[in-house]
Amino acid sequence: MSAPTADLEVGTPAEPRTFGPLTRQMFVRYSGASGDLNPMHYDDTMARAAGNPSVFSQGMHQSALLATFATDWLGAENVRRFGVRFREQVWPDDVLTCTGEVTGIQPTDEGRVVTVALTCTRQTGGVAISGSADFLIPTLQ
């Protein structure tokens, strides 16, 4: 369900998208789906013994949410590069808001490479993940 791409220009924002509140069950499901079986993500006793207030979300879980946001905006079939930087932990009951903005457009023989800045922010205002991606938007025939 990607948005129209003909009107994209530098500075064009994506419609923000909110995920959450995130639950412990989501962390457990992601653990199983991803194979990341670190008990810090699903065992409160172990997480607290390590000095955390509770279990916490996997960084790649937030990355997956940010990727979903970006590909819903500009099309999964158009992704050419996706990169993130983990910045802040995400806890049960956090609500994440994903935002994006076009930061560059390069014409190519196949269309336009659209570069976007991406951010996944917690309800506290803290940035959980920041990143960027390139999408090849084909020339309309």
Rank of each mutant, 00 (worst) to 15 (best):
M1T: 14
M1K: 14
S2T: 14
P4E: 11
P4W: 07
T5K: 03
A6S: 15
D7C: 08
L8T: 03
L8Y: 00
V10A: 01
A14Y: 06
A14T: 13
E15N: 13
R17M: 12
T18S: 12
G20C: 10
G20M: 02
P21Y: 08
P21I: 13
L22S: 02
L22H: 08
L22W: 10
T23Q: 10
R24L: 09
Q25C: 06
M26T: 12
F27A: 02
V28A: 07
Y30H: 13
Y30G: 06
Y30T: 00
G32F: 04
A33W: 09
A33C: 04
S34G: 06
G35F: 04
G35P: 00
L37E: 02
H41S: 00
H41I: 03
D43A: 04
D44N: 08
D44L: 04
D44S: 08
M46D: 05
M46K: 10
M46T: 11
M46N: 08
R48A: 04
R48M: 10
A49R: 05
A50G: 03
G51V: 03
S54Q: 06
S54F: 05
V55K: 11
V55R: 07
F56S: 00
F56A: 00
M60Q: 04
H61M: 15
Q62G: 15
S63V: 09
S63R: 07
A64H: 11
L65W: 10
L65F: 12
L65V: 09
L66H: 10
L66M: 11
A67R: 12
T68R: 15
T68F: 07
A70N: 02
T71C: 10
T71R: 07
D72W: 08
L74A: 00
G75W: 13
A76S: 05
E77P: 06
E77N: 11
N78W: 00
N78I: 01
V79I: 12
V79N: 00
V79T: 01
R80W: 03
R80S: 03
R81S: 15
F82C: 00
V84P: 00
V84R: 00
R85T: 15
R85C: 09
R85G: 09
E88R: 15
E88V: 14
Q89C: 02
Q89N: 14
V90N: 02
W91Y: 13
W91L: 09
P92I: 06
D93T: 13
D93S: 14
D94Y: 06
D94E: 01
D94S: 04
V95M: 04
L96D: 02
T97L: 03
T97W: 04
T97Q: 02
E101G: 08
E101W: 09
T103K: 10
G104C: 01
G104V: 06
I105L: 04
Q106Y: 07
Q106E: 14
Q106C: 06
Q106T: 13
T108M: 02
D109K: 11
E110Q: 12
E110A: 14
R112K: 13
R112C: 01
V113D: 01
V113N: 04
V114S: 00
T115R: 13
T115F: 05
A117I: 10
A117M: 07
A117G: 14
T119W: 12
C120F: 07
T124R: 08
T124N: 04
G125E: 00
G126K: 15
V127N: 08
V127I: 15
V127E: 14
I129M: 11
S132M: 08
A133F: 09
A133W: 03
D134E: 12
L136I: 07
L136V: 09
I137S: 02
T139D: 01
L140M: 09
L140C: 07
L140E: 13
